[in-house]
Nucleic acid binder design. Structure first.
Length: 426
DNA sequence: TCTGGGGTCCTAGGACCC
DNA sequence: TCTGGGGTCCTAGGACCC
């Protein structure tokens, strides 16, 4: 059996650990720029605030019902997430788990044949509650997809399963659950597929199992067949061991729309720098860089424009300078004057480990010259705080010799304590 | 005025190979 | 008249997840 440990409205629960007066009150947490609602307490859900609701549309409702509204604090959520993971994983052998997202993890209970699964899970839940003050729900079932169903049942019937644990194991229980669960709430069925399902008379998870496998294969691809089996209790999805990322994206909406080219450029260059930092953190280089820009798609009164372009690099790199240069070229090729830009981003992918780079015979490769100074920058930012040391705007000339550093960094250079860095910036 | 930010996987189709 | 068959790799786009 697998167990899915899922934190209840996680971001809100994290806020409540800081301020206990928020208990039993409607609370929501907003996304970046306070754009939309990304976490809602049970009380807030009851008021009819949907997931991903744009905050501005609900301002009145918030005021009317005295909803406590918070901007996201991701450092806090990541910290609490680690603590919850540590506790939950201490209950299984060292690799018998999968951290699925910031607020959920699967545990493999297969090796515990002689314990009472229910009591064991209640202990997990209680320890997380007592030590971290984070409420969790635990769904237990033979497959990951059914764990999701079991978890859903705990959350939807809190009075019935007030110890926070539900075990979905017998065929009878499974049949009953699947006849209750709407098809759109099955793990792997999104908005699009839900519509297709309804059009074909599939309303409950159970209805899907009555369809011929060929039909499911055609409509949903290989996913669908796996899903059918998983719902029947036949295991198709194993627990994934953590693997290095395959792509890194830094994208943001802007608080205000930007029209000046240099303002948008400054944003995408910064995004490129963050991508580079994250590449270096996992000791990989990327072979592809994508830049995109877009206007506000909700503003029908303004002309719409969106564009993206990808560059394959001659040599893999994670240097902020080299990536910045490519970002700048791509940006130049897609930016159009006369639009109100709302969002932009940089995506890097196609990674190779830092020490296994294959170098083009024909292109100059300066990655290794950049690396020490980049690592030094990272070390300083870790010590003194995010963005204390950064590249100045590369201003289209992209000669890194002219890169400017922050005043803090220049002061630091004067003290002459930068290890391994033999570069001069001025 | 104000509408998130990450990720993954699969498929279809084209180019190319023998 | 008849015009192969089986691969791989790459990319764009679409679906999903939290």
């Amino acid at each position: 059996m697998y167990a899915l440990v899922d934190c209840n409205n996680f971001f809100v629960s994290c806020e409540r650990t800081l301020d206990s007066t928020l208990e039993n009150k409607p609370v929501v947490v907003l996304s970046n720029n306070d754009g939309c609602v990304v976490s809602r307490s049970r009380e807030a859900k009851k008021l009819g605030i949907p997931m991903a609701a744009p905050a501005f549309k609900y301002k009145e409702l918030f005021k009317q019902h005295d909803v406590k509204v918070f901007s996201a604090k991701f450092e806090l959520y990541n910290f609490k997430s680690q603590r919850v993971i540590e506790i939950a994983t201490s209950y299984v052998d060292k690799t018998d788990f999968e951290v699925y997202s910031i607020d959920e993890l699967f545990l493999d209970l297969t090796s515990f044949k002689y314990i009472d699964t229910h009591d064991y899970c209640v202990n997990i839940k209680n320890e997380i509650q007592d030590k971290e003050n984070i409420p969790v729900s635990i769904g237990v079932a033979p497959t990951k997809t059914l764990c999701k169903v079991a978890n859903r049942i705990v959350k939807d019937f809190p009075e019935k399963f007030n110890d926070g644990v539900y075990i979905l194991d017998t065929p009878e229980k499974i049949e009953k659950a699947l006849k209750w669960l709407n098809i759109g709430d099955v793990w792997g069925i999104g908005r699009r597929l839900a519509v297709t399902m309804h059009d074909s008379g599939v309303y409950k998870a159970w209805d899907l199992l009555q369809k011929p496998e060929m039909w499911v294969r055609k409509v949903m691809g290989i996913h669908g067949v796996r899903m059918m089996n998983e719902l029947k209790g036949i295991r198709q999805l194993e627990l994934d061991t953590p693997s290095p990322k395959k792509s890194i994206a830094v994208t943001r909406s802007f608080m205000q729309m930007l029209t000046k080219k240099d303002e948008v450029r400054e944003r995408v260059e910064t995004f490129g720098m963050y991508c580079s930092e994250r590449l270096r953190k996992q000791n990989t280089c990327c072979k592809m860089v994508t830049v995109f820009v877009q206007t506000n798609r909700f503003r029908k009164d303004l002309p719409e424009y969106r564009n993206a372009r990808t560059q394959i690099l001659p040599n893999p790199t994670n240097s902020s300078i080299l990536i910045g240069r490519v970002v700048n070229e791509l940006f130049e090729s897609i930016f159009e004057e006369g639009f109100h830009y709302k969002k932009a981003g940089v995506i890097v992918n196609d990674f190779v480990p830092e020490d296994q780079r294959l170098i083009s015979l024909f292109e100059e490769d300066t990655q290794n010259q950049h690396l020490p100074v980049m690592k030094a920058m990272d070390a300083m930012n870790k010590k003194y705080g995010k963005d204390k040391v950064r590249l100045g705007s590369m201003s289209g000339q992209n000669t890194w010799g002219r890169a400017q550093m922050s005043p803090e960094y220049e002061a630091f250079l004067k003290n002459n304590t930068l290890p391994e860095a033999n570069f001069r910036f001025h």
